[in-house]
Design a binder for these strands. Structure first.
Lengths: 233, 233
DNA sequence: CCAAAAGTGTTTTAGCTACACCCATGA
DNA sequence: TCATGGGTGTAGCTAAAACACTTTTGG
């Protein structure tokens, strides 16, 4: 999270992005760790008084990943009263020698607007923010314990991503420019958490008409070389 | 909207429900009018410091409709900077002889969490809130001009409702306890804005298995009496 | 020539659409 | 008995699933 000095940010409102990447046939999530603590969280942030909500989120993503114009989907706003943890925040200020008066807002209750983002893993250069000393990728199935309701937020993000898989172009944001059909299938499988029929998957994808086929990719392996594909437009 | 005295409410956060009802074969929306003005809006409200977001919305719905445990679905949070209209608010305070200092918060920028609600039209007893002198049902296709981005909010609500029509039990909330297949079809048609095949609609609904068939309804009309249905559980 | 992975063809099935047909009712 | 609206049966089409088959590559 970013430190809001004074009245620069809207009180009581935050955003939390679940940033998905794809590498080694697995779906990954970008997680930050609080400075000098064993507390993990989504790389959330706050909204400037004079900035659109969506702009704030894109700004935060740019700061943490180095990327512009990231694929972003808002999926839910979490507003339960108990989404605040004064204990952890007090400990955080103490451990890091910060003035509780100056950082009073950290004890507030926050209504958070949750997004999921899809990024090209290779292009991301993860940068911790001012409250963190580490940020990094975690396997979706190997997440550390997360603060507050962030586990629930990740779960809901995944649920929404799965539901949108049919009618949104998910692969385009998670894969490099050129990719094989096998890689595309692995993206779908890692999101759905189940294996799909290879032959029918290929037919389905091709029938949708948004894939462009290019030259073959010679892997040097003892089998037929796969075609490479890009997304149209 | 409800007047938040002092620090009772969270600043900069509101909710706006699109309350759908069904009557006379048409989908209706509940709209309020600002006291002594020609300004119409969704019946939104604010969140207590010590209350869950969802609880606040249900409380607002109870105040305006008299109903408890209303079917509610959150669909989007609108956070553009320009969603505030100091001009209209200043006029509102002037027309109603209110102190601009006391009602300063009305000039704030609000991030609003939007919901749609489905209610049984016959059971609703619409009550205007403290900022309004009128609340009433409007045909979806005959809405008055709405303040700020409320037209967009209604549009998005309808879009989400349509998308959810397949996998949520929409009819159960919009219809009375017992209803005919024709009424159920009219609900679907008014939401989708298109007519459906009578025979196939009936088969589809019955095949889903959540309808229970009861005795016939003798209408006194010159044709076969239709069955009545309820939703299971 | 063999194993491994990629790519294509074919059969079966399920669900939807269109439409024909029959039933119940009051005038 | 006719008009009107309610209810069911069925043929045809299309998309998806299952699976057999062919192709390409390096060892």
């Amino acid at each position: 999270m970013k430190i809001p000095p004074g009245k620069k940010y809207l009180r009581h409102i935050s955003y939390d992005p679940v940033i998905f990447g794809f590498a080694g046939s697995r779906l990954k999530v970008l997680i930050t760790r609080f400075r000098n603590m064993d507390v993990y969280a989504l790389p959330g942030g706050f909204i400037h008084q004079d900035e659109d909500l969506e702009t704030a989120v894109q700004r935060g993503l740019k700061e943490r990943t180095g990327l512009d114009k990231i694929y972003l989907e808002q999926f839910h706003t979490f507003g339960d009263m108990k989404r605040s943890d004064p204990g952890i925040m007090g400990q955080f200020l103490e451990v890091n020698g910060l003035d509780p008066l100056e950082y009073e807002f950290l004890f507030d209750r926050f209504v958070t607007v949750a997004y999921y983002a899809l990024v090209n893993y290779e292009k991301v250069d993860p940068q911790p923010d001012s409250l963190s000393d580490y940020i990094g990728w975690y396997d979706l199935e190997g997440l550390p314990g997360l603060m507050l309701d962030h586990v629930l937020i990740v779960k809901e993000a995944l649920r929404t991503l799965r539901a949108n898989l049919d009618h949104k172009l998910v692969g385009a944001s998670l894969l490099p420019e050129r990719f094989t059909m096998k890689e595309l299938q692995e993206v779908y499988e890692s999101i759905l958490g189940e294996s799909l029929s290879r032959t029918n998957f290929q037919r389905k994808m091709l029938s949708l008409g948004f894939l462009e086929r290019h030259e073959k990719k010679y892997t040097g392996k003892a089998h037929k070389a796969p075609y490479l594909y890009t997304f149209r437009n």
